[in-house]
């Protein structure tokens, strides 16, 4: 089967079985390796990408669920040598990046969060991040970065 969708704004046409995980298409066919295969079972969130603006675990999303959709990966945040987005800046300056293996997935969850309207509290931000495991940081600095992105204080930075 052939599946058409967009990845980071560009149209792609992938010829593969419908059950093929989106993650393997991204990493192996398209050479987009930001999203990581941390577990392959939808548990760690290292493979998080945005599908139609919502965070999904690309390792368990079959290609047929992506058809005609719009996929965004971490490579799209600051494409090429463009300046970093606020999510990227805040994560770095807060110290929310250690080994960085969770970071691409974490950033996509945070990006979706900043794009959604709503009042975010620390608790709701933490709840939104439970699908993204970070083994390094203990989360506090990631949550600090997230709060700066979603609150007025962060907006004015």
């Amino acid at each position: 089967m052939s599946y058409k969708f967009t990845v980071n704004g560009e149209g792609v046409d992938i010829d593969a079985a419908g059950v093929t995980p989106l993650l393997s298409v991204l990493r192996e066919d398209l050479g987009l390796t930001a999203a990581k295969l941390g577990c392959g079972e939808g548990r760690c969130g290292a493979c998080t990408v945005l599908l139609n603006d919502r965070p999904v675990a690309a390792c368990v999303v079959p290609l047929e669920a992506v058809a005609d959709g719009a996929v965004r990966t971490a490579e799209s945040l600051a494409s090429g040598d463009a300046p970093l987005t606020q999510v990227q800046e805040e994560l770095l300056s807060a110290g929310g990046v250690q080994c960085g293996a969770c970071t691409p997935g974490m950033m996509m969850t945070l990006t979706a969060l900043t794009e959604q309207q709503g009042e975010w509290t620390e608790d709701s931000v933490r709840a939104a991040l439970t699908g993204n495991i970070c083994r390094c940081t203990g989360y506090h600095k990631i949550v600090d970065a997230a709060m700066r992105c979603v609150t007025a204080e962060g907006g004015s930075r």
Binding site: R27, T33, A34, A35, K36, L37, T73, A74, E75, L77, A78, L84, Q88, L91, L92, S93, G95, V97, G100, A101, T103, P104, M107
Partner: peptide, 21 residues
């Protein structure tokens, strides 16, 4: 001083090349 980590830019751009990549 708390200098930000020197390898952070590639990590947040998603282009750092890990063993798995």
């Amino acid at each position: 001083t708390t200098v930000p980590r020197a390898d952070g830019d590639a990590k947040v751009r998603g282009i750092a090349m890990y063993g798995m990549d």
